[in-house]
Write a protein that binds this DNA or RNA. Structure first.
Lengths: 270, 270
DNA sequence: GAATGATATTCTGTATATTGAATGGCGACA
DNA sequence: TGTCGCCATTCAATATACAGAATATCATTC
């Protein structure tokens, strides 16, 4: 009993439990697993990894293959993602102006301060997703479009907590699951969140990744409520100080305000 | 009885029928519908469009929302695609060298002959998916990455038929469902497929879209079997003649042979 | 402000998706 | 070449996802 489950398996079990369409949770888990994997996977490998019954898993894979979301190699009996997922992404991109709108601002910041800049979308309290990127000249750090991170991590996390109006208990629960290089205490973090609120943007100085400073400024898609996106600057702490961190912070805030306007939103006066 | 069903509904009904995981077919249909739609959709709209029971549809949407593949606006009660689909696409892109490998060749062809060039992936006999594009200087025609087309349509279709070794009956069934501006007869088409086989590439002269010529050359990922990808050139018939269609055909074939080599495949000598 | 029409959502019995065991098939290794 | 062990796949019993009716919620019109 109470054997230690891999986290993917753990979460999936929960999602399946109280859903009226568990097959869909299983399908999503399979797709994500295949997306992470560097090479094609066999049925049993997938089933074991996700804690699924092999026969159930087989039916899931067959359904996904029929939908062209998963490719099946009959020779090796191995599965990979199929091009159908691209088609879905295209549908999403068509309806989302943020990537196009923010790109010029990202490029300007990246070029002027020689840093990596991301445009991210905030998906509730769960995750943020990288929508657009621009790398500095000597790109020390990078992240790819489509990457997911936990919502509350690093500078963006403080933004989300600061401007989101979430119940403190909920925040603390989520906070407890985060992985940092140098984890702040919850109390310290709350102080930093308060600072973020008064300053209008967030800083993470080496907590998430040692030696790396992350700045994040919120973007509002509509007038009220929580921010929908954020601009994120990533750079080595030493390099940032050289590049003029104060100016960079101003430029970031201005860019975020501009993006908010372009999105038809309104930056609240905290 | 025998009321005319929308085609999406028709196909979905079939897929659900004999699947051991019908919820997954329904989920995929919902995602595709949301991907096509220009604006957020309500529950009943979706259910009606796909011929689903509203309550079933609700459970599907809730499951998809929990997986961050669908976004739900509690105010308007409307659904859209969510950024999670981007994450899946990223996973696929990581494992697919074709887009990166082919891009230079596409750009060269597009620039030299002022045409639109596509790199497509062949997904069985069902569809092709656009993986990479390059537009000419005055881009008369275009297609976006992620777009899907029926496998047997236009020049690419003749390639697939010519080099794929599919049963004739299967081909004829599928052929019957295609929509052309100026449909060829099945007999004519078979002749053109035979020509394609001997020539090594396919031409569609105004059949698919009036006044538009399409060329397609196959690419093999592995030594034997059917081609996995194709290079496709699209241009106005008049413009192509001016640009030197004979040279273009040579250049296309050479490019496809080169891509085949880069992919580690082998162009068979038909 | 009442009534109407449309929508989203909950509820309940039943057809069926899921499970775990049994079978079939393939490669490794001796 | 035969045996073993793993993997994919089928099979049969049953827990449950699903369809349809009932209810709740919301706009819209008079």
């Amino acid at each position: 009993m109470a054997t230690k489950l891999p986290s993917a398996e753990r979460e999936l079990a929960k999602a399946v439990q109280d859903s009226k369409a568990p097959a869909i949770s299983r399908a999503a888990a399979v797709l994500r697993l295949l997306g992470k994997s560097d090479n094609p996977l066999g049925l049993n490998t997938i089933a074991r990894e996700l804690g699924l019954n092999p026969s159930t898993c087989l039916y899931v894979l067959r359904a996904l293959a029929a939908e062209e979301l998963v490719a099946f190699d009959p020779d090796t009996k191995r599965y990979t993602l199929e091009a159908g997922v691209l088609t879905l992404a295209r549908g999403w991109l068509r309806r989302n102006r943020f990537a196009d709108l923010a790109q010029p601002a990202l490029d300007r910041l990246a070029a002027q301060f020689n840093v990596t800049v991301l445009g991210v979308q905030i998906v509730g309290l769960d995750h943020i997703v990288v929508i657009a990127t621009s790398a500095g000249r000597d790109f020390q750090l990078s992240a790819q479009v489509g990457s997911r991170f936990p919502a509350l991590i690093s500078a963006t996390g403080r933004c989300i907590a600061a401007f989101g109006d979430w119940p403190a208990a909920e925040l603390e629960t989520r906070f407890a699951t985060l992985r940092w290089d140098e984890p702040p205490s919850f109390a310290d973090w709350q102080t930093q969140v308060a600072e973020t609120r008064s300053r209008g943007f967030a800083i993470d100085e080496g907590h998430y990744i040692t030696g790396v400073t992350v700045l994040a400024a919120p973007i509002w898609k509509s007038a009220g409520g929580a921010p929908s996106h954020a601009l994120v600057v990533i750079g080595l702490a030493s390099a940032l100080r050289r590049a003029g961190q104060a100016e960079l912070q101003d430029a970031l805030l201005t860019a975020a305000r501009g993006s908010t306007q372009q999105m038809g939103g309104e930056t609240p006066g905290f």
